[in-house]
Amino acid sequence: MSKSSKAHLSYEELIEDGNTSSVDGWDFSWFEGRATEERPGWGYAKAMSDRMGKAAAGLDIQTGGGEVLAKVEKFPTLIAATESWPPNVAIATKLLGTRGVVVVVDKDEPPLPFGDEAFDLVVSRHPVKVHWQDIARILRPGGTYFAQHVGPRSVFEVVEFFLGPQPEASKGRRPETAREEAEAAGLEVVSIQSAKLRTEFYDVGAIVHFLRKVVWMVPGFTVEKYEDKLKAMHQYIQTHGSFVAHTTRFLIEARKPLHKN
């Protein structure tokens, strides 16, 4: 079992560290030595980069700080990204602007600020909400939507530690629902792959940082509001060495038909 790189810190110091560190962007390097997450075998970033290299016009939806898109080796002639959160917009613009990527501020609500059939490739890593009808609208005939989605009940061991049982959560983010909604929008689902992956947190400060960064996991989370739960979490990790949860992901590829039925 791994040990936190901050194991020498007291409970109060761990809480302070997790509560004051920057959570801007989607760079998770802060967690090094303090949490681990198993990765899906399909390698989204590499697969997405390969597709971008063959596309004429590409769009990355909800790009975060642009960290994943920045890994693309060869961009299409036309390349754009959308993001809604102002701190992430600034990070993405700085990271991607020198490579010719236009970062567009968007509220993550339809319609996307692009014309019909504007792109032959639309990608996204962990979109909060997928508006399938709008994706179908901006895809060219024969174009592809390629994305890695968060699956059902992802990291819910952490969520339910703080909030208690969440039975309704099993109904959300299901691959089967994504297939149904994509097909209802007129897209053909080429493939879906799913994975359940081990995630471990090695100190309570990493839990605090995670819940501040991924704000929808425990809505309204603050250290003060959940002080009792955080103390219990700290004690659990001290006793067991880590807190184990499971991340769920699914990879989906959908294509817009060349011709309408």
Rank of each mutant, 00 (worst) to 15 (best):
K54E: 14
K54C: 09
K54S: 15
A55P: 02
A55D: 06
A56L: 10
A56W: 00
G58W: 01
Q62V: 01
Q62K: 04
Q62R: 01
G64S: 09
G64E: 03
G64Q: 06
G66N: 07
V68Y: 03
A70I: 00
A70Q: 04
K71C: 06
V72M: 12
P76I: 02
P76K: 03
T77H: 04
I79M: 04
W85K: 03
P87A: 06
N88S: 13
N88T: 04
I91M: 07
K94P: 00
G97W: 11
T98F: 05
G100E: 08
G100P: 07
G100V: 08
V101S: 03
V104Y: 03
D106Q: 12
D106S: 08
D106T: 01
D106L: 02
K107H: 04
K107C: 01
D108Q: 13
D108F: 00
P111R: 10
P111K: 12
L112T: 05
L112C: 08
G115K: 15
G115R: 15
G115D: 15
D116Y: 05
E117R: 11
E117I: 00
A118M: 11
L121A: 07
S124P: 03
R125D: 04
H126I: 02
H126T: 02
H126D: 00
H126Q: 08
V128G: 09
K129P: 00
V130E: 02
V130I: 10
H131L: 10
Q133K: 13
D134F: 05
D134N: 07
R137G: 10
I138Y: 03
P141N: 05
G142F: 10
G142N: 12
G143A: 09
T144E: 13
Y145C: 05
F146Y: 15
A147P: 01
A147C: 08
Q148T: 10
H149N: 14
V150I: 12
G151W: 04
P152L: 06
P152Q: 06
P152V: 08
R153W: 02
R153A: 11
V155T: 11
V155E: 11
E157T: 07
E157C: 04
V159T: 05
E160F: 07
P165C: 11
P167H: 09
E168W: 03
E168V: 00
A169D: 09
A169C: 08
S170Q: 15
K171T: 12
R173W: 12
E176N: 01
E176H: 00
E176P: 00
T177G: 11
T177D: 15
A178C: 10
A178F: 13
R179C: 06
E181A: 07
